[in-house]
């Protein structure tokens, strides 16, 4: 009897200790600048972290794998469709997917149409949900957070995890304070990342509408962007890096304009046009002010 009681007590202690460690963050104990997870996992942390982001993406799509789609979590500009269910809205990319499916059908060898194989496929399709839906509404959108949290914890160097998490917190759930705190932590771990400064600037701009802080964060983002590219913005890089550059400049120009600093906005727009000559917004600011 006593032995059983002691065993039970030990289990309860282990349980309580687990909860305590997770709650207090002691498990993040630092040793020589690396936490316990970092010491244990080494470079596989990044892979693990990326897998967590993929899992979050699957959650966003109602449990269906969708990492290679154009509008996954890593692409923030997702458009909602009108076909809603109670908690989620159905996916409406029929054109894109049907094109893809057609292409796949053409490539794959002749399908085996035997009765049993068809039957097995049918049952599996019914048991496993197919046709992805998106989480919609604060009550459901928060469901991806555990995996984003895990992604950030698994690898603090995963900039994408910070970006997506902060976007989700600020834009979808209205938790701007939490989003900014997270980005600050991210910047601490990734001091050279202009992307995290840009995310910060974006939150200050919208939803917070604090243009002074937007300017400050966007300036830092621009400085880091230039540092990364050796101060030569005219010789870039990838399309996404150019878009980021454009985004930073837009935030700067628009914040200046909204603060009534029209001359500064105009001169910034002029500089921006040297790198992005086709940008209609910069042209408009330059011409009108």
């Amino acid at each position: 009897m006593l032995k059983r009681l002691v065993t039970l007590l030990l289990w309860l202690t282990a349980l309580a200790l687990g909860v305590f460690l997770l709650q207090t963050g002691l498990i993040q104990y630092q040793k020589g600048g690396r936490n316990i997870i970092a010491v244990l996992l080494g470079d596989t942390r990044m892979l693990l972290s990326s897998k967590m982001v993929v899992l979050a993406d699957e959650y966003y799509h109602g449990g269906v794998k969708h990492q290679d789609c154009e509008h996954g979590l890593s692409r923030h500009g997702h458009q909602k469709t009108l076909e809603h269910t109670q908690d989620e809205h159905a996916h409406q990319h029929t054109e894109l997917h049907s094109k893809r499916n057609n292409a796949e059908t053409k490539q794959t060898p002749e399908k085996d149409t035997s009765f049993f194989i068809g039957w097995v496929e049918q049952i599996n399709k019914e048991i496993r949900p197919s046709g992805h839906k998106h989480l919609h509404g604060k009550r459901y959108e928060k469901e991806i957070l555990p995996w984003m949290w895990a992604a950030v914890k698994a690898s603090p160097e995963n900039v994408l995890a910070y970006q997506v998490s902060s976007f989700w917190l600020a834009d979808k759930l209205g938790k701007t304070e939490q989003a900014l705190k997270l980005l600050e932590k991210g910047i601490e771990h990734n001091p050279d990342s202009y992307k995290l400064e840009l995310s910060r600037a974006q939150i200050f701009f919208d939803p917070l509408q604090n243009y002074e802080k937007t300017l400050s964060a966007a300036r830092k983002a621009l400085a880091k962007w230039k540092k990364k590219h050796g101060g030569q913005p005219e010789k870039p890089r990838s399309k996404s890096e150019l878009l980021d550059h454009q985004h930073i400049l837009t935030l700067l120009v628009e914040s200046n304009r909204r603060l009534g600093e029209l001359q500064t906005a105009r001169s910034r727009a002029k500089q921006a046009l040297e790198v992005h000559p086709d940008n209609e917004y910069f042209k408009k600011i330059f011409d009108n002010h």
Binding site: V19, L22, W149, Q178
Partner: peptide, 11 residues
């Protein structure tokens, strides 16, 4: 139980 007690970004 410990997993269910984790606080994810205060949500």
């Amino acid at each position: 139980i410990p997993l269910s007690c984790i606080n994810f970004f205060g949500v």
